[in-house]
Design a protein around this nucleic acid. Structure first.
Lengths: 216, 216
DNA sequence: AAAAATTTACCTGATTACGGGTATAAATAA
DNA sequence: TTATTTATACCCGTAATCAGGTAAATTTTT
């Protein structure tokens, strides 16, 4: 709580940028080193100043915040990135994490939330706004429920799926279960029909996506 | 901040359970309705009391916290679940989200963090401890780093893996890439060697676990 | 410029997978 | 008690996979 957190801000809308600056400059814990209105501008700015945290919009004209983040994280691993956006898409969030953002916050967040997020990230933590987490969880929850309804597999079929995922061939499965290989083939065919997959690749993909790989 | 948050606790270690109770019962905001020492006990308890939040260990003898969570969330959608664990595995967290937990906290978390998490969840939010988020992000970031170290796949190989995951046969891939089927077979063999898998099932499983299925 | 890695391509032969069926005992549900 | 589902088993034929090689052209690295 001693030295202020050094930050830079990036957004291609001047007004929004101004709003952010006014919002944050009164906070004694935070020191704004500079602002940029584009991804490239942000990268240039980072050659001059060394912030702890970069707060950047994700939708910018010349370079997407995603690309900028990628470059920043590889060039200056110590600098944390807080992504700022209007959208609230789950798939997007996942990608952001892959690219190494430390936090993700919606533009309609309040002053409290924003400063809180910046402080948390500067301290080495992460901040993902509740709204984002909710959407993320929804998107993780839905596919499995939806899918399970459409594909009612029997116990035996699940068992065989599991064994297929574990790299067993039809013959090996037959031996394991003391059944005729022909029986396993039949099950296999039924599974393919139910899941609408063409081959083992599709089956395994489905199984893993729906947590069927290691079920007894 | 008026009525207390009603909670129940579940953990199969009596001592830990006691610790939790002592930790929480002094907090006026929280009211402990009961405790359980097993998954089944937890479900029984829920037939008698209606908590806002269930704080449950994930490793319990008779029924895994995962299964219990699944049942709780489908039977009582209003009850939020805070998962409590010693492990900090990323893949696991993902599954938890799918099963509908509202939060995930490590057992070595302090009193502050725990009560904070409970309050946040009761208010309809989510709480995933920083340590967990970090691991999760690592696992999302690293597939390229970690995987590359142990399994140095080339671009072509990744491309072919991706096509295999999409249910393409060797011949189809050859046509798609304007290459000889024999070439694809060679790549395929090299991939098997590198990943130490026996067949397509193993390959697809590896690919999906490491986010290689839909990479260009 | 030399060494290493990648990408390409081929050969043989055994095994497995897959698509198209049919059919019967056993367990479950109506 | 029927009717349905599940689990079992079989046949045929084509296509694909997999294991065991070798090897040259190209690109990248040293």
């Amino acid at each position: 709580m001693d030295k202020p957190i050094r930050i830079v801000l990036a957004d291609d809308h001047q007004m929004f940028l101004d709003g952010l600056v006014t919002m944050l400059q009164r906070n004694r814990k935070i020191e704004i080193l500079g602002t940029a209105q584009s991804g490239k501008g942000l990268l240039q700015l980072l050659e001059e100043v060394q912030p702890h945290v970069v707060v950047t919009d994700l939708q910018m004209e010349d370079m997407s915040g995603l690309e900028a983040t990628k470059i920043i994280r590889s060039r200056y691993p110590k600098i944390k990135v807080l992504a700022l956006t209007m959208h609230n898409e789950a798939g997007f969030v996942r990608k952001l994490m892959e690219f190494g953002v430390s936090g993700y916050i919606l533009k309609n967040a309040g002053k409290q939330e924003l400063t809180g997020a910046i402080e948390k990230i500067a301290a080495g933590g992460t901040y993902f706004s509740d709204a984002v987490m909710q959407t993320m969880m929804e998107s993780l929850k839905n596919p499995s429920t939806k899918t399970n309804k459409n594909f009612p597999l029997t116990k035996r079929e699940r068992q065989i799926i599991s064994l297929i995922c574990q790299e067993n061939t039809t013959n090996e499965i037959a031996r394991e279960l003391n059944l005729s290989p022909l029986t396993i083939e039949t099950h296999r065919k039924n599974i393919f029909l139910k899941l609408k997959v063409k081959n083992i690749a599709g089956l395994v993909r489905f199984a893993i996506r729906n947590n069927l790989e290691d079920m007894p």
